[in-house]
């Protein structure tokens, strides 16, 4: 149980105060206050419920995106002229967009694009940033200093502006967007992986491996990497949501994944011209995106806490 672990750890970390202080010290977003004994049982169940609800939604979205080609859906690109800005009906459960394409089908195919962008950018950024961060943390010295300076410089740019510049120069395509997002996320992954590595290198099993005569490469791959994977993955999970929103922002500006590929962002952007007459065209994909990002944050925040690295090391 996450709660149990935390209440055990806090006094050791802070070194003062009893359980009453802990309730107040606990800064985190979704935390249960252990002092409220009456309500805590109910709240723990409701947390579980919320967590499962969020997970369920994410599984539904991913499942629908994966199964899109075999689901009984309309063609996402083919207009049905009886369905122009159509409301909800039996044949088109979520209605149609401004030129009559089926909203449900576009939503599900859009999930493919949005998730593909989010996931591949995160995987790319996490693998490159994670490895560089481990090297920085393990090797130290000049390598670390150079990497950290580059990291600082990259973080000095406002992200969306850099992304827009990249799209302006290289043109809007899925590859440019994925690579751009990945590049933007590398510095943070470097910092996270480095901070985690610094903690892990202090542990006995690393000392043991070194004493055993293992080369740095082997220690990094066999001892450090497995311990860095979890915090990096947990952070990467939240980044998927951030990237889905970033792709949406680009699409909103007309610089996202180019048509005909539907994405949530481009659906929301396209429906904006009809916002006052047919708000559902924009609002349905907007709601789906919001709920998905919310679920990712909720599940991710909960999971990340278990592998939390103290911020001071970042």
């Amino acid at each position: 149980m996450a709660e149990a672990r935390e209440t055990l750890e806090e006094p050791i970390l802070t070194g003062n105060g009893g359980p009453t202080d802990l309730a107040a010290m606990e800064p985190d977003l979704l935390d249960v206050e252990p002092d409220q004994t009456v309500a805590s049982g109910r709240r723990r169940r409701s947390f579980q419920f919320g967590w499962w609800l969020a997970c369920g939604w994410l599984i539904l979205v991913v499942g629908a995106a994966l199964l899109a080609p075999i689901l009984p859906l309309w063609e996402p690109g083919t207009p049905d002229y009886t369905n122009v800005a159509g409301g909800l009906s039996a044949s088109h459960p979520l209605g149609g967009d401004a030129i009559g394409r089926d909203n449900l089908s576009r939503l599900i195919y859009g999930a493919r694009a949005s998730l593909l962008v989010g996931l591949s950018a995160v995987v790319l950024g996490a693998v490159i940033g994670g490895l560089l961060g481990i090297i920085a943390g393990y090797v130290g010295g000049k390598v670390e200093r150079v990497l950290l300076t580059l990291t600082d410089a990259t973080l000095a740019f406002p992200g969306l502006v850099l992304l827009i510049a990249a799209v302006a120069v290289f043109g809007a395509s899925m590859t440019v967007i994925i690579v751009g997002l990945a590049v933007l996320s590398i510095p943070t992954f470097i910092r996270l992986a480095r901070a985690t590595t610094l903690v892990i290198v202090q542990r006995e099993f690393v000392t043991a491996a070194r004493a055993y005569g293992a080369r740095p490469m082997r220690v990094m791959l066999r001892e450090v990497v497995p311990n860095v994977v979890l915090p990096v993955a947990a952070y990467g999970f939240i980044m998927v949501g951030v990237f889905i929103v970033a792709e949406g922002s680009l699409s909103f500006l007309g610089l996202g994944i180019p048509p005909p590929t539907p994405s949530w962002g481009s659906m929301i952007a396209a429906g904006r011209t009809e916002l006052l007459t047919h708000p559902q065209i924009s609002l349905i994909p907007a709601a789906v995106m919001f709920v998905t990002v919310l679920s990712i944050n909720y599940v991710g925040e909960r999971t990340r806490k278990r592998f939390e690295v103290k911020d001071s090391n970042l």
Partner: peptide, 17 residues
């Protein structure tokens, strides 16, 4: 928690509506 997960382009749209 909800507000932090709300993209600007969605919130702006809702406010316009």
């Amino acid at each position: 928690f909800g507000a932090a997960a709300m993209p600007h382009f969605i919130l702006g749209m809702v406010l316009i509506l």
